[in-house]
C-alpha cells in the first residue's frame, strides 16, 4: 500500500512538472468579425480546446486576444474553428451557409461580401416571376410553374408547392382560356379543365400526400402536353417504382439527376429516367 501511494505521488509530481514545462504560452491578437454578446459567447466557446486555449473577444474593437500553448495548439486551427462557428477572421472566412444560420442579431457585416453567383438556390416568386415569364410561350409558362410545384414536393414543402400552384392559377386566370385553347397551347382544349382543377386542388391542400396524388395526375397531363408543344431544352420523363401502392408514378424534370417529388428527402435519388422529351 505504502509503495502504491509513493508511486501515485511520484506520478502526480511528474505530470505536474510536465505541465509546468509545456506551459509555453503565447498571446496573439487577431481580428474576428461579429456583433453582439451572443457572438462573443459563440466565438469564445469555439476557440476553446483541451490544451487550455483561451480566446477573449472584444465586441467593440472586434479584436480577439488568444492565449495558447505554442507546442500543442496551432493558431491556425483555433481560427478555423472560429470560422466554422460562423465568424470571419484574418485567416479564414466562414462558410456561407453557416454564416446565414447564425442568429439574427449575429448577422454582422462581412468584411468580404459574397458574390451573388455563389448562392446555391434562387427562387422566383409572385409578380416578378410573372413579369419574367411574359416573354415565354404559354406552354413554357405552364411548364415552369409545374416544375416549381415539383420543387416544393421534392423539398417536402407543402406551402412551397401550394404557392407555386397559386402562381400558375393566377397565370391561367390572367390568360384568356379560350385563347390558350385555340392558338397557343396544343391539346389544351381536351385537357385544360381537368388541368386547372388539379392545380386548384394543389393550392387548396396543405397536405403533402394529397398534393402528391394530384401531382401524379398533373404530371401525366404535362407529359402529354410536352409531346405536342414547343419549349426550350430537354425534359426527362422519370419514374418512381414505389409510389401509388407500388404501381409507380411519373414526373417531368429538367435534370437527368433524379430528385423524387413523391418521397422527397426520404428517397431523394430513387427513380429512373424513362424517356427524354426533346425540346423544340
Amino acid at each position: 500500500m505504502k509503495s502504491i501511494s509513493k508511486l501515485l505521488i511520484a506520478l502526480l509530481l511528474s505530470t505536474g512538472a510536465g505541465y509546468a514545462q509545456s506551459k509555453a504560452n503565447k498571446i496573439t491578437k487577431v481580428k474576428v468579425w461579429g456583433n453582439c454578446g451572443l457572438c462573443e459567447a459563440t466565438i469564445e466557446k469555439a476557440a476553446r480546446d483541451k490544451n487550455g486555449t483561451v480566446l477573449q473577444w472584444d465586441k467593440v474593437s472586434k479584436v480577439a486576444t488568444i492565449s495558447y500553448n505554442e507546442n500543442k495548439t496551432k493558431l491556425d486551427d483555433v481560427l478555423k474553428r472560429v470560422a466554422l462557428a460562423g465568424y470571419d477572421n484574418d485567416v479564414y472566412r466562414a462558410p456561407n451557409d453557416i454564416y446565414l444560420n447564425l442568429d439574427d442579431c449575429c448577422q454582422y457585416d462581412r468584411p468580404i461580401k459574397t458574390m451573388p453567383s455563389q448562392s446555391s438556390a434562387v427562387y422566383l416568386h409572385g409578380d416578378s416571376a410573372w413579369r419574367q415569364k411574359a416573354t415565354m410561350n404559354a406552354f413554357s409558362i405552364i411548364l415552369e410553374s409545374y416544375l416549381g410545384i415539383k420543387e416544393g414536393l421534392v423539398h417536402n414543402d407543402a406551402s412551397e408547392s401550394s404557392a407555386q400552384a397559386k402562381i400558375l392559377i393566377t397565370i391561367l386566370q390572367k390568360t384568356d382560356h379560350q385563347k390558350l385553347a385555340t392558338t397557343t397551347v396544343k391539346g389544351w382544349a381536351e385537357q385544360g379543365s381537368e388541368f386547372s382543377q388539379l392545380v386548384t386542388g394543389i393550392t387548396k391542400s396543405n397536405d403533402l400526400s394529397e398534393q402528391r396524388k394530384m401531382f401524379m395526375r398533373l404530371s401525366q397531363q404535362v407529359y402529354s402536353l410536352a409531346k405536342l408543344n414547343e419549349f426550350q431544352g430537354d425534359l426527362y420523363y422519370q419514374h418512381c417504382p414505389m409510389f401509388n401502392n407500388g404501381k409507380g408514378a411519373n414526373w417531368l424534370s429538367k435534370n437527368l439527376a433524379v430528385k423524387n417529388p413523391y418521397y422527397g428527402s426520404a428517397m431523394m435519388d430513387c427513380g429512373k429516367t424513362l424517356e427524354t422529351v426533346k425540346g423544340k
Partner: peptide, 20 residues
C-alpha cells in the same frame, strides 16, 4: 440579407438540391 444582396432559400440544414 441586405448586406449580402442575395436571396437564399434556407431549408434548415437540409440541402436536398445538392447535385452528386
Amino acid at each position: 440579407k441586405q448586406g449580402e444582396n442575395v436571396l437564399i432559400q434556407q431549408k434548415e440544414t437540409t440541402q436536398s438540391n445538392i447535385v452528386t
